[in-house]
Design a binder for these strands. Structure first.
Length: 254
DNA sequence: ATGGTTGCAACGCAA
């Protein structure tokens, strides 16, 4: 099974790239974040024409998550219990006994922002929910834009980034707390020593200078970690014309 | 140097 995640930063703009990527890689499951589309505008037919189902939870202008899949999923959820949130950031689906959660974790803006407090609360509620879900579904995949670089080697300049949003202590602790529920970071599991990034700011030629962070992740429960064969970051779309600021992360299981 | 780029939507906000 091939599963992938990409923050598209507007599906309207990136639809041709999504279709092209699916054509080349034929994923079983493709999770998207920042679709920035209300559900009424989702391009369902474009995906049907290439043999994919689309499930989505969107809103106008901001946020929005979707799962494209060859097979239909079940048990769709779009909200985390205890978290009243108008922002569309969560999409849970079950595919053949595998529980999949597509997350667009809040950015946080800066550590002094109210949005940072919202991010930490979001992660705490998410943690508690996942703890309960894991008991029900031993095979689980959490993937998406986590907006957290877990370790120093996941940041191009960790000294400059220390204490900054995306790399602050509390965010990294929240990430570790989710791992400690019984998840493995797929990329790190298969590439223990690699330094690769999944996001580069649009500004300052950050991509060309490889000034990036690894903030997009595919986490797998123990039951799946032992079946994980590949996990890699595909930068091809980041260097395309009119790119998203994120790369695609891919995993192969079984 | 506190900049800069992109998307949305219509101007500043969010990332």
């Amino acid at each position: 099974m091939k599963i992938a995640t990409w923050n598209v930063n507007s599906l309207r703009v990136r639809l041709p790239q999504v279709l092209e990527w699916i054509g080349v890689h034929q994923p079983d499951i493709f999770a998207l974040q920042e679709t920035k589309l209300p559900d009424t505008d989702f391009p369902v037919e474009a995906f049907q024409q290439i043999g994919y189902q689309a499930t989505f939870s969107g809103q106008r202008t901001y946020n929005g998550v979707a799962i494209l899949s060859r097979q239909p999923g079940s048990e769709m959820v779009t909200d985390i219990p205890g978290l009243e949130d108008v922002q569309r950031r969560v999409l849970g689906m079950t595919f053949a006994n595998i529980r999949v959660f597509n997350f667009y974790v809040p950015n946080g803006e800066s550590v002094t922002s109210e949005k940072y407090a919202y991010k930490l609360n979001w992660l705490a509620k998410c943690h508690d929910y996942l703890q309960a879900q894991l008991k029900q579904y031993p095979e689980m995949i959490l993937l998406g834009d986590f907006n957290i670089a877990p370790e120093e080697r996941d940041v191009y300049d960790p000294k400059q980034w220390e204490g900054q949003v995306l790399f602050s202590g509390p965010e990294r602790q929240a990430f570790q707390a989710i791992l400690q529920l019984g998840f493995q970071d797929g990329f790190r599991l298969l590439h223990p020593d690699a330094q690769e990034f999944s996001w580069w700011d649009y500004r300052l030629n950050a991509f060309k200078r490889n000034m990036g962070l690894r903030i997009d992740h595919i986490l797998v429960s123990q039951a799946l970690a032992v079946k994980c064969q590949k996990c890699f970051i595909d930068k091809s779309l980041r260097q395309a014309e009119r790119p998203s600021d994120h790369a695609v992360v891919v995993m192969e299981i079984e």
